[in-house]
Design a protein around this nucleic acid. Structure first.
Lengths: 197, 197
DNA sequence: GCTATAGTTGGGCGATCGACCAAGATAGTC
DNA sequence: GACTATCTTGGTCGATCGCCCAACTATAGC
């Protein structure tokens, strides 16, 4: 017999619904454009539940954004970690990014969170930890495949990916088939040339 | 004798003060976090003036953001146009970007406008025109200095610069001394290698 | 059944929002 | 002075904001 849904189960589901709806709305309306009532309506719950399950709207938005970003970064990490060569890694990473048009919830949530972090110290600290860890993994991956200057290349590569996502919102033609060759040259040259910094 | 300030002169000054304050506040509070009253207070004018000089708050924010961006892009264009070589151009461009910490009004305004453009068709159209023109000039500059694959390189370069600005807000150590060598390799390799896409 | 505990409801608090407007102030024209 | 055009003021409108809470429901342990 199916397990009966307890009150605690329903509470957990409400929290998850609120977090998911918050991630959507941050992308749609901007970080400061999400209100408790609109959020509750999207999640299909009563308005009062927002401040029952979370200490504040800001805290809810933080949890929602950091959760999504953490998940996405883990996915991307596992993608390039399975790539045998530098070229294959870039190709795989960028190809997976083509799924994001720049106007999709994920891309926009990413950028909105970056901006919100400049106005929220708690968010800034937590987001820094996630990004630093991602760059560390990317650096390690570059080192294992013989790239020189891996730390700086990883930093610029991570920044370039975010920049491409941002620009793609305005220029949908900025697909991986355009970006990949350029970035591949960046990495390839890092491998073939000695450090020149 | 100094020219007496007419009513029209004062009106012009109020418009400029509102536009300047709007650019500041977009960076400080986010696009959707700027209100008519806060804006009027920052500009030192009565609240009612906002809707006298501009049809709506949105229109005011658009004008302010597009004006600032247009000015900045012109400045950057003139910078790299005077650079004789590819290396010198990247060095000059990135060096000038070090003035922006990523938490400064200009960088944040840029990104905020990108995001707002995904929610405002008028803004999206006008911003696209500015960005397209900038990329066209950058492409032309790359062509004149013998870079291969100049169009795609320009697109990625422009996106990478925005991405670096975004990341720098979280990681102030991401200075031009770190970014420049990596991007210079990108451009240099574009010059030395045949198209491999 | 009784009592904690957890979750939920809907409305209310003071504050702020974008937009609007009647009234007043100022400068230029006749 | 009379008239016009322009700008400015301070306040009001209905709507919405984040947050809070008394009342209510439903489950768990006894």
């Amino acid at each position: 017999m199916a397990p009966v849904q307890t009150a605690a189960d329903r509470g957990r589901e409400v929290r998850l619904r609120l977090l998911g709806s918050a991630a959507e709305l941050i992308a749609e309306r901007g970080w400061t454009g999400v209100s408790t009532r609109i959020l509750a309506e999207r999640a299909g719950v009563a308005p009062g539940l927002v401040h029952y399950h979370f200490p504040s709207l800001q805290a809810l938005l933080r949890d929602a954004a950091l959760g999504m970003i953490s998940d996405l970064l883990s996915t991307v990490e596992s993608l390039f970690e399975n790539a045998p060569t530098l070229d294959a890694g870039v190709h795989m990473m960028l190809g997976s990014l083509d799924a994001y048009t720049g106007n999709d919830p994920t891309s926009l949530l990413f950028t909105e969170t970056y901006l919100a972090a400049t106005r929220d110290e708690t968010l800034r600290t937590d987001l820094s930890i996630l990004i630093t860890e991602f760059r560390r993994q990317l650096t390690q991956w570059l080192i294992e495949r013989g790239a020189t200057n891996p730390r700086n290349t990883a930093a610029v590569l991570a920044a370039a990916i975010d920049g491409v996502m941002l620009h793609r919102a305005l220029d949908p033609d900025l697909t991986s088939s355009i970006v990949a060759p350029v970035l591949r040259q960046l990495i390839s040259s890092a491998r073939h040339r000695p450090n020149n910094a």
